[in-house]
Design a protein around this nucleic acid. Structure first.
Lengths: 223, 223
DNA sequence: ACCGACAACTTGTCTGAGGTGTAGAGTTGC
DNA sequence: GCAACTCTACACCTCAGACAAGTTGTCGGT
């Protein structure tokens, strides 16, 4: 049935199994699950492990356990948290979404950037050009620059979307940097400088193109 | 300090305590928490209980545990509800974000649309051209078409973002339609047909431009 | 300088024992 | 017959200990 589930933590597998049976309608909304001991034997894991699986689903808002009473289904479909979605999907999908958001934001920023925005972007650019001791540190200064660009678009929705991506992108970026450090650091820094300059010059088309080119480069590096 | 926390399950209290310390910045994004045994003693609960607390936060996407390595902070704040954000911001901001997402999705759809996607889009287009009794009904068929386009991009993140916008956009659209009905209905329908045709012809540039033109038209109509 | 073995961590899992709270069966009184 | 009470069985909750499995850093040999 689900051969892919035969990996990782047992608790995670158990949670997956439970969720599958819930979505299949075995225990409808509001109904009670069998007891811990029964269910643990049925799934083939220890009680503690099953309890952790239940906690995981409780954290996602699917189950609720009441002492002395039982464990109940309180939501058949996961109110899929943004973080949860992003962790599930591929990095490529996330980068494509970043292209959509950041390219548009760069174009809007070229229209609307204030002198204050420009100072913030150039400050972030300078910090990015400095020396960095770890992949984490570099990822942070890079993300900070990108965030300043989106902030300069003065569009709250785009900024909120960007912030939603940050955790996921940061992890992926650090992994990538550790596996394969940036080949041509000078060119990379120059590309970012060009983006800031295009925004400074109030050139939406070039700004969008800079952003798009950079991110498709990242996309290529990851595949 | 937190008298209200002295109730309910111990595991829930522990999770609350952890979340508080995380949000206070004690363990920044991406950093490792102390070991389970250490933390359990520190908080004053058993190790199993602490593990359940960690699972609960893991289910919420705050923590991630890696065997042999440790438990890490992967998201300091739980994502603010989309509905709340979107209600707060202006309609103009939302439309700009829609441009970003839908134009990119249209371009990707032009690359990736399958015959099945095409059928779905043309079916939605046909339903949109039919007669509609209410503004609500028209808004729904319009949104359905736009959604099919984004779905044809085969990018889950973009689709998820679009779905997040739907409720807010729907309300704004109905209000607008009641205040000022569409002037040239024929031209409006033709613009949507052109978008679908561009995707059918696998022309990303034209598809993106159609989408962008349509939405900026909506933007203008609202201001 | 490189590399492999090892040791000292980490989290993952299971078991068994008590504790606490709830719901329902059984009893009692009217 | 019916309502209220008591009590017991069963549910989840918590802890402690033991061992398995994975990761990381160290230390010695080459």
């Amino acid at each position: 049935m689900t051969p892919a589930a035969q990996q990782g933590r047992l608790a995670a597998q158990a949670a997956e199994a439970l969720l599958g049976r819930i979505r299949a309608g075995e225990w409808p909304l509001g109904h009670k699950l069998p007891g811990e001991t029964t269910l643990a034997v049925e799934i083939g894991v220890g009680r503690s492990t099953l309890r952790e699986a239940i906690r995981e689903l409780a954290g996602q808002g699917v189950l609720e356990s009441r002492q002395g009473s039982g464990v109940f289904v309180i939501s058949t479909d996961i109110t899929e948290d943004w973080d949860v979605v992003l962790r599930r999907v591929s990095v490529a999908s996330v980068i494509e979404a970043r292209v959509a958001i950041e390219a548009e934001a760069a174009a809007l920023a070229a229209h609307r950037r204030t002198p204050s925005d420009l100072r913030a972007m150039r400050r972030a650019l300078a910090r990015r050009s400095g020396s960095h001791h770890s992949a984490e540190e570099f990822a942070d200064v890079d993300m900070a620059l990108h965030r300043e660009v989106v902030a300069a678009s003065h569009n709250e929705v785009l900024l909120e979307l960007f912030d939603g991506f940050v955790p996921r992108v940061r992890v992926a970026m650090i992994e990538m940097l550790k596996l394969r450090p940036i080949q041509d650091y000078e060119a990379d820094q120059a590309a970012h400088a060009a983006l800031v300059e295009a925004i400074a010059e109030r050139d939406p088309a070039v700004a969008a193109e800079c952003s798009r080119a950079h991110l498709t480069g990242v996309h290529r590096a990851l595949s």
